[in-house]
Structures are given as structure tokens and as C-alpha cells.
Amino acid sequence: MTAPLDVPGAAEEAQPEAVAQTGGTRDRGRSLGQIAWMRLRKDKVAMTGGAFVVLMALVALFAPLIVSLLGHPPNQWNREMIDPALGTPMGPMGGMSGEHLFGVEPVTGRDIFSRIVYGARISMLIGFLATLVSVVIGTFMGIIAGYFGGWVDALISRLMDIFLAFPLLLFAMALVGVLPDAAFGLQDNALRIAILVFIIGFFNWPYIGRIIRGQTLSLREREFVEASRSLGASNFYILRKELLPNLVAPILVYSTLLIPTNILFEAALSFLGVGVEPPTATWGGMLSEAVDYYDSAPNFMLAPGLAIFLTVLAFNLFGDGLRDALDPRTQS
């Protein structure tokens, strides 16, 4: 059902944000996906990023298995690793050894490796779900604004401006502060995760919304949309059958680029103590505890910091590569 894409590349120049609704003419007989994949495969950096993303997803998925093989239960205390008077890990390098790959936490002696592995679950879960929320709202609002134009567009565009102006972090902190521990039929961590997904996703939709709006604006002037319209197709039909399929590529690209932003956001909230409740391991939460030990147990801060950094970087590299692959303008 996807629309034919053999439209001359003239519009590309005019639409700087244009991503991949074209390209068919040059490589006749290959689908857009195949072309993009070919390009992406040549981009070693993006592929490395992609591989790391897949790795982290697998780590999150199989956390219990990995930990049972290489670590200790993430919430298990190992007091024998801790100096009773100072509270810091004994042994060199913050207790690093074959037994504890990344060392142990001060005070509790919990295995840092296992907590990093389990922390990946929360980061990935919230990163993905929040992005999903943003994409759903953003796509819907963006298409409506771009397609109908006029006052609808003006209203939604203004709304997007307003949303971008909100002090998100403060809002998130405030919401977690005022809400009870059980509400909307959820409680404890389920509620916390729901709140985090909602806040991060709900306030970030304009990023997707703006891009979709721009794409829709250019698409609606195309012949195939005009043709549908002249054949008497309803607006709903055009939106769903003609526009949406052509927006899949940009949605994919910008979702990939939004996920790392959301992962950073979740880490920030956990760092500020308004994330998921302990003892559940989160990368941001580990970093906030590491603040007190930055001078005596650097491994405690390096492990979660690098986990966040590498994961976010991998998503960004992959997302950039994906955009380049799908965007004919940037090929070298």
C-alpha cells in the first residue's frame, strides 16, 4: 500500500528537513528500505552504534541470566567487602576483582556490575515507552497541523512553542513530589514508571510534532495527494493511507534520536532522587550516590556514568547514520 515514490527530487532543496520521501528514481527496482539499508551498512560508525544498542537491549532483556552468570543479585549486600569504620570498599580499585567485575558500592557492598546490568532495564524501558508516547502524540498533532493548515496549524504550532518553553525538570520533580504513592490504579514503582513515562513523553512530543508538521506540509502539495483528493477521498483516508506511510521514515529516524534524550532525562530524574524507587538499580540513582564518594571510590561513579554515556552515544550514532542513510541530500 505504500505510495509510489518516483517523484522528481526537486522538492528536496526547498525542504531542508526533508527526509526520505524520495529517492526511488535513481535506484529503480529497489525499495527505499533496501537502499537505506545498503547505505547504512557501509557506515561503520553507525553500525557500531546500532550493534551497541542491540547489545544493551539484550542486556536489559536477559539481565537475570547475565547476572546469574557473571555477578551477584543486584540488591544483595556484601558487607564483608566494606571497611566497617570508613564505609568504603576494601581492596584496590573499589573492590574490583574477578568476583566483582566493576567493584562494589560503598556502604552496602552491592555488586556494581549487576546493578549496571539491571539499571539498563529501567533506562531502556522508560526511554522506549516515553518515546512511544511522544511519537504517538507528536505524529497525530503534526499531521493535523500540517495537513489542515490555517488556524489549526497556528494553534498547534503555538502549543508546541509553549511546551518547549516549560521547565520540564522542575515540572517532573513537582509532580513526583505532590502525587501520592498510589493513584490511578497503580502504585509504587509501577506508578513511578508510569509518571516518568508520561512526563517525559508528554512534554517532549513537540520535537516529533514539529518535524512531522514540516514533512506533512510538503507532502500535501504532492501530486499523489492531489490525485487522491480529486478522486474524492476523505481527509481521514488521505491522512491514513497517503500521508502516514510516507512519514514512517522520519518518524523512525527522530524516534531513534529521541530515545537517547529520554534516557538522559530519566537518568537526570533518578539523579535528583525523583526517579524509580530504590533499591531498584538505576544509572542516575547510582551516580547520585556516587557524589559523596567521588574522591574515594571513582569506579562507583565511572560505571554508571559510562553506561549512560555509551548507550546514549550509541543511539545518537545510529540515529545520525539512519538519518544520513534515509536522506539523499547528505550522501557523500
Binding site: D83, T88, M90, G91, G94, G95, P298
Partner: peptide
């Protein structure tokens, strides 16, 4: 930077032998 920090840690003496007289 990781390598630098870890060597800093080794020298910084964040790891006592434990059970000392405090």
C-alpha cells in the same frame, strides 16, 4: 579519561586495608 581516573584512584588511596585503628 577512564584510564586517568582509575590511576588517580589507585594513587588517591581510597582503599584502606580495613579494620584499622580509628
Amino acid at each position: 579519561s577512564v584510564a586517568m581516573l582509575l590511576s588517580a584512584c589507585g594513587g588517591g588511596g581510597g582503599n584502606g586495608e580495613g579494620g584499622g585503628d580509628y
